[in-house]
């Protein structure tokens, strides 16, 4: 009996509660006015927050044919600034070591250059031109942006105890694996005057290289 009274009382109380709150709930749903005014101001685009990737830094390795001194392994680095979609500046350095001349090989115990003079170093500053931008397709799932570029410039070569003004020109093919990572293969021809084996003459050094670079 006591239980029954409690039950009736509580049911009545609960119902009363629901009745008391329900209109408010329904009223809220019907009302178009939000309880909290949105405090969001439209934000203008801030250019400084957009990442610009006009610089590129990279490393390369390859083979260079040093005239009269065999072909050698070469490695180096480059820093590129993209002026526009077609033109870019590139500063590069390269390191190699000259081998033996055929005279040294035939005559036996003769050294034309000391070991330190055989160290081959160059730096150059170049202007590049993206001649053929395009896409390359790898299997059916991947498409990569590519650039075939021409490049030419000047700098200096340090070899045979001498530093010589050097022109260089070449071409390369760059494949962008992502928007900020690229691989490329290239050929460069270096021209300079040198007198390390007798009379002064033009030395032509062909370089074949492959590199990896990151945009930032």
């Amino acid at each position: 009996m006591e239980n029954r009274t409690k039950h009736l009382f509580l049911t009545g109380f609960c119902l009363a509660q629901v009745m008391a709150f329900a209109p408010q709930v329904f009223a809220q749903e019907r009302d178009d006015w939000p309880l909290i005014e949105p405090d969001v101001k439209p934000v203008p685009v801030n250019e400084a927050l957009i990442d610009t990737e006009n610089f590129e830094i990279g490393a390369f390795l390859g083979v260079i044919n040093i005239e009269d001194f065999e072909s050698s392994f070469i490695y180096g680095g480059k820093l590129t600034y993209h002026l526009s979609e077609t033109f870019f500046f590139e500063a590069g350095i390269g390191f190699a070591e000259g081998g033996q001349t055929s005279f040294e090989n035939l005559a036996g115990n003769v050294q034309v250059l000391t070991d330190s003079e055989r160290e081959y170093r160059y730096y150059n500053i170049n202007l590049g031109y993206n001649l053929l931008p395009g896409q390359a397709f790898f299997s059916e799932n991947y498409a990569f942006n590519t650039n075939f570029y021409l490049i030419a410039g000047a700098g200096a070569t340090d070899f045979g105890g001498d530093t010589r003004f050097t022109f260089n020109a070449g071409a390369g093919y760059q494949v962008l694996l992502t928007d900020s990572l690229a691989i490329d293969i290239g050929v460069r021809q270096h021209y300079y005057r040198i007198d390390v084996v007798g009379a002064e003459k033009t030395s032509m050094n062909t370089e074949i290289r492959t590199g990896l670079s990151v945009f930032f």
Binding site: T86, P133, N145
Partner: peptide, 24 residues
């Protein structure tokens, strides 16, 4: 670059998120 193919276009009213810039 202008050499790359056009593959899509956005029409009037669409919102675009700017991710990064390379030259122009």
């Amino acid at each position: 670059a202008v050499g790359y193919p056009v593959f899509h276009s956005s029409e009037k009213g669409e919102w675009l998120t700017l991710l990064q810039r390379k030259t122009g």
